[in-house]
Write a protein that binds this DNA or RNA. Structure first.
Lengths: 202, 202
DNA sequence: GGCGCCCGACGGACCGGTCGGTCGGGCGCC
DNA sequence: GGCGCCCGACCGACCGGTCCGTCGGGCGCC
């Protein structure tokens, strides 16, 4: 709430549209979602959408950015922690999973629908994604340099970890019987065990 | 010549159509791919597609089935191996990765585009997918029962492993600098390390 | 208070274009 | 000739997006 009634009204309406779009983009995909469906879910006529949003593409771009922001801002809080690399990896995976679950729709837009972007938005999307992956690569490389992690290909290790994390988008259901904390803990443990030194001789 | 090796091969028209469709479905997604594009890539007029395939939906269904068959038939060769569970897991992950890379387009249809199916095909898809996941769950549960794997939630462990594997669809490029064998080995090692007993006290 | 104006929110009708799919006919090979 | 393969032309439906009129609440002016 800003205290300004007129602004609040506009923000809420616009937000309703964006949330409806994010939900549909996540569950059906960008291309399979029509502006009519978004309008219906938001409780508006189709033409009214365009009072709040310039185009379907722009809407996706905004949602992708928002999803990315959720992940990066959550991760930055972890990045600065003064902890052993192993624990920072654990925190990073935990944070990713919990952030996704909390902001499912927009993060799913970022993870799943980014390729539907065009032009400048597409470039910005790839840049953001690379920066996000790069942060994980530094984390893993740091752990290897410090001897906390076994030596292994950094890119592949990050692909493995992020694949495990991103895939949550595809199977998580709020009523699926797994509390977010449980998923976050198990996945963090899985990632850490995959990288830490020990059990040599395989 | 189209310049696309997957389509240029000397095969029947029907196969050319299916391969073109699989390639486009993987790279652009089912909904973003038009029958006109498929026809063009296959070197045919749009109407000619319908001499080989009854509909776009049916085509996707066939490709999803085919991708699923590639994975399951490859996995069944591994399932019967008389090896410790740890080594069977390693083989399973290796096989999954290598099979995906060898049959990228149709397997990607199975992994990524299955949700675009409708009706009976949709039900069959979910059944196949569940059977595939079920096989992995039995493998993991078996390893835990035998004491080779640490006790952990089986479903989550399989989600983690399959997430890591399925995500290959999204980043693998033939010229990406990673030989398939390297990816398969690293991912198998990652999965095994995530599950085997040892390093307790975390 | 009462009146009139304004303006943002909204929706019905409609646009050009593209979608998946159909149809009738032509062309070449046996 | 007959048959398999193929294509241009075409269909109704639906796409994202626009146009323009309606509605109603807020605000200045008297």
């Amino acid at each position: 709430m800003t205290g300004n009634a007129a602004v609040d009204a506009e923000v809420t309406s616009r937000e309703r549209v964006l949330r409806a779009a994010a939900y549909l983009f996540r569950t059906k995909g960008f291309d399979a979602t029509s502006m009519r469906e978004i309008a219906q879910l938001a409780g508006l006529g189709k033409s009214s959408l365009y009072h709040h949003v310039p185009s379907k593409q722009q809407m996706l771009g905004e949602l992708v950015d928002h999803g990315m922001d959720q992940l990066t801002s959550a991760l930055q809080r972890v990045a600065t922690a003064d902890l052993p690399t192993t624990e920072r990896l654990r925190l990073a995976v935990r944070t990713h999973v919990l952030t996704y679950i909390e902001h499912r729709d927009s993060v799913a837009c970022f993870i799943q629908e980014g390729r539907a972007l065009t032009g400048d938005q597409r470039g910005a999307f790839f840049a953001h994604r690379d920066r996000y992956e790069g942060w994980f690569r530094e984390l893993v490389a740091d752990g290897i340099a410090k001897g906390e992690f076994r030596p292994t290909d950094v890119k592949l290790a990050v692909f493995a970890i992020l694949g495990m994390c991103h895939w949550v988008v595809r199977w998580y259901r709020p009523d699926g019987g797994f509390p977010p904390e449980k998923i976050a803990d198990d996945f963090a443990e899985f990632a850490v065990r995959g990288l830490v030194t020990g059990q040599e001789g395989g």
